[in-house]
Each structure stands twice: as structure tokens, then as C-alpha cells.
Design a protein around this nucleic acid. Sequence first.
RNA 1: GGGCGGUUAGCUCAGCUGGUAGAGCGUCUCGCUUACACCGAGAAUGUCGGGGGUUCGAAUCCCUCACCGCCCA
Length: 997
Amino acid sequence: MPMEKTFNAAEAEARISQRWLKARAFGAGANAKPGRPAFSVMIPPPNVTGSLHMGHAFNNTLQDILVRWHRMKGDDTLWQPGTDHAGIATQMVTEREMAANGEPSRREMGREKFTARVWQQKQKSRGTIIGQLQRLGCSCDWDREAFTMSGAPGAPADEEGNFHDAVIKVFVDLYNKGLIYRGKRLVNWDPHFETAISDLEVENIEVPGHMWHFKYPLAGGETYEYVEKDADGNVTFREVRNYISIATTRPETMLGDGAVAVHPSDERYAPIVGKLCEIPVGPKEHRRLIPIITDEYPDPTFGSGAVKITGAHDFNDYAVARRAGIPCYRLMDTRAHMRADGVPYAEAAKVAQRMSRAWLVAKGYATPGIAEQPFTLSEAEIDALNLVPDDLRGLDRYEARKRVVEAITAEGLAVMVPAPPAKPRPGLDPGPLAEPGAAASDEVPGQARDGVEMIPYVESKPIMQPFGDRSKVVIEPMLTDQWFVDTAKIVEPALEAVRSGRTKIIPPSGEKTYYHWLENIEPWCISRQLWWGHQIPVWFDEDGNQYCAENEAAAQAMAPGRKLTRDPDVLDTWFSSGLWPIGTLGWPEPTEELKKYFPTSVLVTGQDILFFWVARMMMMQLAVVNDVPFRTVYLHGLVRDAKGKKMSKSLGNVIDPLEIIDEYGADALRFANAAMASLGGVLKLDTQRIAGYRNFGTKLWNACRFAEMNGVWEGHATGPAPSPGATANKWIIGETAKTLAEVNESLENFRFDTAADALYKFVWGKVCDWYVEFAKPLFDGPDAEETRKTMAWVLDQSMILLHPFMPFITEELWGTTGRRAKLLVHTDWPELPATLIDRAAEREMTFVTTLIDDIRSARAQVHVPVGLKADLVATSLTDEARAAFQRNEVLIKRLARIDTVTEGAAPKASIAVAAEGAAFAIPLEGLIDIAEEKARLQKACDRLQKEIGGLKGRLDNPNFVKSAPEDVVMEAQSNLEARVEEAAKLQEALRRLSDLG
RNA sequence: GGGCGGUUAGCUCAGCUGGUAGAGCGUCUCGCUUACACCGAGAAUGUCGGGGGUUCGAAUCCCUCACCGCCCA
């Protein structure tokens, strides 16, 4: 049955996939040859509930190319697949679906039932992305599919694997080594999911915001002289004040202020350091007094130079508070509503007041009263204090903000400025952004003073705000008990491994980023207040003592007779995926796979995930098994749309890889991915380009179809390169060997783009454009048999070399073009010696192809009809050129559309073509426009002259000849000679035409 | 503010350790020559972001400025 005109990807892909799977072609060690090394790759596990997007498609294409290549080379290959339980994301997806179905909420269900429900969701979703990866052609060992939560309590019976035990064991080990600790720390709190998240899961986005300026009155009506000076020390402003001016973007957090801080060098506030000031919110009779302290943190040039310190709700403030011993008062609950728990405000405020007083005494700013006892509170006692005034309790943080601003402004404690356009007073400098009343809700009637309308000073300005990368709500820094990995203690080996080259990161800029992050590593918060995940294996007794053990029985054994409760938190998903390399290979069992495939060869992943995952895997593997997880890390950029925009649903510019596969086939998408994969930078995806690579596949298809029509495949069997006699055949075999070398070298260096480029140029530019054309006349001559053999071999090599890039179409061709011993997926990657490259054949074919090109170009430019067969006169020929010409005369005549060839003098009316060692003329009396031909020749001469000028200039420069390497000088010399020769021939032709007039 | 990267043909990008710019797509002209119109033949197009420097020679190395992007504050 003759071949179709095009490859039917939609029909064939599923069928071919099935064949591979049925043959277990992707199993670990499939096609491995004795003595060959192992090659292993861990898939970056996609979210189990996710679906394939372009980033996955790109990432997995590259992995598959490497894996298929190594497998064909006979390496003992493993591509380990699997999915990630993705704590927050999966919990979110499940809850959303539950709500849509009208199922009971998570809280109504309770933890156990909910967890079971998420398992259902997982089983339902799991097939989606795995199936999509298979559609892309990923040759993972699917029988080994892993899951980061396999083996966890509650897992369905048919759920295989046991990743859970590995995770728990690592936690216990690290805990016992003192590398994991629990503590009350300020963490990023997601009020939507009501869990802590790591700083990497926070996106800082600049949004429009406001900065309010408020007066904090000094205690007891005290006053001081506030003086501002310019750079030369001249006084520019002087005023007696009874307050200190504070700027804030978050007025609601004033309730939790523990101090006001100024820079130690700030002379303006020196007189009042160590005094108390009043937080201007809350019931008047219970206003809290807080100390004015010094710290390096406040920037004297920013705002008023004074900063309120709210240790429990701001990371910078937290650091200041820790340094100064200032208490941190938590104001909000898990949903970022103002706290409604605890004793009434009046009582809490009284206790906090004593804290301030005690601080002054402790720091020596105040002398203790005779009966005054030192006053301290434990962390837990401070946390229990709710300093939210009764009327604000239970409010959302933004509602509370609004109320606080209103109350302060009404009381006259907002800093006031004259309404624009009047110029504001010095000392306040609202700047151009000063905006009366700010948001409509903040509007307060202006107060008349000295006849000028005064308004509250509220700056409208962009502020950086943290958002949860999943929930998209504003993150609240929150003081909570969390578990941390003491990363500082395990970071050094991870740094050392890259510094020493034990693990190589490419591109090298990735290494710089890696160092930068690890050298400034922060403790890693690994607890999450979720239900879906690995529950932390720590139990507490009634006294709060911790028992860390692999299970409850073991914990109980550590605490005989005590009643234990387990920590309800789960581990950060990245903690478990951090163990992906060893966990998927069966660790802690000393499995064969672990021995063979660990450390893994290559990790291919996006550069956005360097910190999240790569760096943490490095730290964890080194800490747990004292070895690097991978030899090489290949980082690639993010896939964008054709204009470079990030693909997002809201922008509507998402390109769905599955739609692309439907329309163009997986091979086209894969080849496009490979061709785009230059090192570094952004990846802009253009469907036109994908269509181009679909066409490329068709091109190969049709070359094979042509071969079939010419009986090339009859009796064909895969074998070594034939030894033909015809130059064209020798030449294409050499080209094949050169291409193989180029592909090998490119892939060794992870240059998927240059590998793809080399293959494209070879298959289209050499095989299809030239070799197939050469073969047509050869099939009619004495060399027909060897040409058939050569073409079969060359097309075989093309299929083999393209297979890692375009597995489907090549496997299909492989199956339809001959009797094959094995599937292409397991066919040996060729080893072609350089001796196959015949330099003489190469030179001869270059002569032939450039001559054909030049004749075609000359004809086209002077509008000789393509259909017209012209005559050719060789006006001069060296012996070598004559021999080359004669040997390939049939090819030249056919492709350049030449009728007869003679040697002799050029007729006057003819077009001229110069070649190496030869000059030709095509007599075309009456057919060509003399003026046009003259113009063409003149243009060619001009171009040559310019080149000659440049080359001469260089060679005439004694410094060039003296300092440049010898081969460069020689090359310039021979180039010059060739150009001069060519120019002479064209000049000669030009002269002949001029004679004609 | 700190760090990293980018700025090359209309578009998207290559261009290694300095030797005088390339590929795909798009554009234009011609063509149904029995593998392929998802095709063939031909053509056009760039003071390699600006300025300075090193060098016989710079897209390539150094400095500087401008703009863009990413990461971290």
C-alpha cells in the first residue's frame, strides 16, 4: 500500500504510544548494553491535580530528548516519573469542587473525612497530567510512577509506593540531629488558607497605597524643640512640639505598637529618646504609652524619620523588637480579622502599660519606684494579650484601618497640611504626592486654621505588598508557632558541591543566583496549617514536651504514661519533594535502583524553581545521604507567548499544548521546543514556527515516500554505511557523519537548539534539497543500485537522529519503510567514523551545488523562463574543474535546466557565471535584456570589489600580517585570490556585453 | 535600593575562547518540473541600543549612559 502524502499525527500518535507502552520500551534499563553507564533523570513532579501547560511541555520535551538519546546509545536509562501532592493547591482545588458540588465544607467534614475526599480527588486527577505527558511522547518508566504522598495514612488500598515513610524518617533524623526546631516566629501568613507559607511562596507586588501621618503625643504633656537643619547645618525649621510624627501605611497595626524607633544619629529626636509617647488610638482613658527607642533601622531621610514598631505584624519591626527587647503584640486571628479573644481591652492595656514601664526601668531610662518589682511576661502570656479595643474586635483588618484613621483624624491627631495648591510647611514635606483626604472613605472635613484650609496629610503612593502566590490575598506577617529547618547548618555542603563542580549548573548565571541565595539563606518554615500533607511526626504531652518519632507508638514509648497529642500541622510540600531523588528510588531501603541511578545524571527544570526545589534538594540529599542529588542541573526560562508576555488565563494568551498537539502533532511541538532552547532568556512561542516544524516532518515523510516510489526500501535492512562510487552518494554519507557529530556535541552540551538546527539543515537543506534531486538522474543510470542503498541508509540515519526530537513520525516511518529488527526507540544510536567524510567528494559537490545555484540565480535575475532549457558554454576550465563538471554533468544539466554543453568562446549575447576554476556563459541572444544582465554583473562586481577592498586593506597592513595568526592571514590571502579571479571573469563578461552596446 | 540577564534583518532568536553578521518565520517575484503547495526556484533587508576605550582588527573584551526583563529587598 503506497504511503499517504502526509503523516497523520492525530491517528498515529496514540497507536504508536500504545506500541511503546506495550513493549515496555521505556522501562528502567530497557535497551541497556553491557558496559554502558547509567543515565537517570527525575521528572520535576507536576501537581497531581494539574494539567499540562506549555512550561511542562517544554521542560519534558528536553528531558525526553536526553533520555531517548541515551537509551538509544545503550545506556542504562531511567526516567523516573511521578506527581506531587501540592498541599495548598490540591486542598484548594478539592474545596472548590466540593463547594461546586454542594458537598459539606472541609470543617464540617472533619480532618479524616476531608483527607479521604482529597485522595478521591487525587485519583480522579492523576490520570490527566500523566496522560498528557504520554501524549507528548515522554518516555518515562511509567510502571515506576511515584507520588509524594504515597503510603501516607488514609491512602486508598490500591495506592502503591511509600514515599511517606521516607519523608517521616528524614524529619525524625533531622530533628534528632538538631536541624529542625519549633518556635514562635514571624511568618508569612495566608489569611485565605489560614496557614503559614514560606517567603518563596509570597509575591511582592507594587500596588497603590496610602501613607498616613499621625502624631504620637508625648507622655505627660511634655514638649521639646524640634529643629531641622540643611546639609550645611543651617537651621531651616524650628518648632516646639508635644508629639512625635509617625508615618504608616498600616494604621490598624498601631494598636500593637511596642515602641517608636528613631535612628541613633537623628538629632531631631535626641531630646526625647527614652521618653514615653502615647499611641493615639483606643479609649482615651486606657491609651498605652510606649518608649521612644533608637535603632539603626529607621531611615532619617524617609518620612518623619520616626518609625512605629509593631513586632508582631512586620518583618523589619520584628527584627527591631527582638534587638531592643520590645514585646510583640499579636492583633489578628488566622483570618486576619482583629482578635476577639481574651480579656477586655482595659485589662490587657494595663498589662501592656506595665511592660513599657518595665522596659524603661530595665534599660535605665527610668528609676524604679521603691516598691516596684521587675515585670516580665512569657511569650505565651504576651501572645494571650489582646490589645484590640473592644469596639474594633472581630473586624476585618481593612475595616479596622478605616475606623482607626477616622478616630485619629476626628481627634485632631492626624498631621495636617494646608490644602493645595498652597505650599506645605517645611518640616513635613508631603511632596507632590500629597493628596487631600486620600481615598473617599478617609475624607475628613478640613479644619480652618489661620484662615487656611487644613487637611489631613495622606500620601498616595505605590507600596510593595505581599500576596500569597496561590490565594492572591494580602499576606499578613503573623507571630505563630512554626517548625523550621535550620538551613544555616546544612547549607555549606550544598554550596561546596557546586563550587567544587560536583554538581554543575547551566547556564552559569544559575550558579551565581544559587550562591547568592544560599549565602543569604533564611530559616525554612516547613509547617503548614493544612490537612492535606504529611502530618508532622511530633507529639506533645500535657506539659508541652515534644516527642519526635516515626509513629505514635514510638512516641508513646518515649513518654511512658503520658497523654500525647500529635501536632496537627503538615509539612511544606517542598519538604517532601525535596526528597524526590532518593524517595522515588526506594530510600531508605538500599535498593538496586538507588545504587544504580543515584546520584542522578541531569535535572531539567525551570529557573523559577531554583530556590524552591533545586537548592533544597541539594541541601536535603547532602544532609540525609551525604551525596549530591544530580550531576548537572539544566535551568531553562519561562515559556511566554509570541510577544513575550507571560501566559495567563486573565490575559487570554494561554497556548494549550494539547491544542497544539491536536493541530500540528506532538513532534512539531517538540521540535519547536528544542529549537527554542538556547541557553538563558525567555522562550517566546509562536504557532507559525510550530507549523514550520510540522512541515519539516512532512518533508522527511515525503522524502521517504519518494524513496518508496523508487524501490529504495525493497529488501532493505538496517545496516552499516554502504561504500558507493558516485560522488553524490559518497558526499551525502559524509554529510550524515558530520551531522551526527554535530548532534552529539550539541546534546552533550545541552544545546538542544543547535542540535535541532543541525538536523533541520541536514534533512531539509542537504537530503531533500540536493540529494533527492541528485538521486533522480542516478536512478536512471548505472549507479542506480548503490544509490538506492545509499538513500535507504541516509534516510535510516535521518530517522534515527531525529527520533529523540520527533519520536512519533520517525517511529512510524521506521515501521513502514522496511523490515526492522527492533522498534526505532531501541535502535542503536549510530557511531560514524570521520573516515566516512570524503573531502574530495565534498569539494566536488560544493562545486556542483554552487554552480547550479549560480546558474539558477543568474537565469532568474535576467528573467529567463524557468521552463526554457538553455545551452551552456564553458569558456575556461581547469583540469580539475573539467573533471568535476564531467562527472556531474547529468546532475548539473537537470537541475540548472541546461540542454547542451560545449567548450569554447563566449558568444557576445550571453549571461556569465563564474565558478571555482571555471567560467561559463549561457548564450541567449534575443532572450535577455542586455541592460539587465549588465546591471546584474555590475552589482556582482561591486560586491566583489568591496570584499576585495576589505581583504586588501587588511593584508596591506603590516601590523595585521605581523600579529594575526598565520592561518587567518593565509585564509585572507586565498580569499582575496578567489575574489580577484571571480571579479576578472565577470569584468570580462561585462566587457563583451559593452561591445554589444 | 541590591543582584542577574537582555538590547543583532519586519518578527522570534543564533553567533564558542575577538578575524569582519546568520537561521526560521514573514515579505516580494516566478513556478502545478510525476516525493512534497505542510512545495519548488529566486530576491530584498542590518552605522549588531548610544558614547568612549583596549586591539592590526570588536556584535564579540573593558568602562559609561539609556531602555527592557527577572529575582531579592
